[in-house]
Amino acid sequence: MMRPGAAAAPRPTAFSRLDFRAKLAAVLAASLAAVLWDDPGMGALLALATIGACLAAGIGARYLALVGRVMAPFLLLLVLTHGFFNVQLVLRLTGRAALTPLFTVPPSWPLAGSMVFSREGFLYGISVVCKSVTLLLLVPLCVLTTDPNNIVVGLVRMKVPYKFAFAFSSTLRFFPLLLEEIGLVIEAQRLRGFAVEEMGVAERVRTYAKVAIPVTLGAMFKAQQIEIVLQARGFSGSARRTYLHDSELGLSGRLVVAASVAAAALVVILRLEAHIGAFRAGLLP
């Protein structure tokens, strides 16, 4: 039997055994690099490294493929938007007077006729796509490889109030259940003849909109069940409690934290002082 949200089933790896705080430090350092690096080449390397880290940490290729499928339309939209419309920012970043056209939409096309798709805009779009992919995958890399209870303990050790830590971990636990519920409702719609692959865009939107009623109802029921269960188990939100497992940073965790802090500092210094990671230092001639 697969658990809800099959992604949350990574095999034990060296990364998954790390303390949550060490993972968080590594993820924050990588996120900083993703935000600061506008260079599409470096951004692509970081995104590929993140995908590799996910696979190495035991997150299944199927899950990554699913994320890719879901995000593909948005990522394509990003590339198109920057390629066609992001002129001023790219001109400023490159210091050029004009952008290099890659292609021009035939003038006879309605609405988009004569629009120019620039090479620099395209590369900036690729950079934004790489940032998005990296940031998108860093979250599951950190969260899906950690037992929710260890997340709570780790956050509490970082002085996060227990109530907030518990709410955060509960959200993580609830999310796969919600996805499962959405899947079941979509399945029920298919069984009434509403298979989205057989529909046009407008009908798809209308059909998906109708998912909201049963999903909301199901989510409310599940939330109420969870509240009953929590109350019946003596949960009061009080920070006065004990833990079955402690959160031990350990030598490996300390090394990861130290390396992450150093890497983050290096990324900032190199970006500000040597402009490494800046857009113009990338694939442009």
């Binding site: 188990r233 003596g234 949960f235 009080s238 409690r241 004990t242 833990y243 079955l244």
Partner: peptide, 13 residues
């Protein structure tokens, strides 16, 4: 979980 909420010592849990 319920034992942690009741502040039961770790060994006893």
């Amino acid at each position: 979980f319920a034992l942690e909420n009741a502040c039961v010592p770790r060994g006893e849990i």
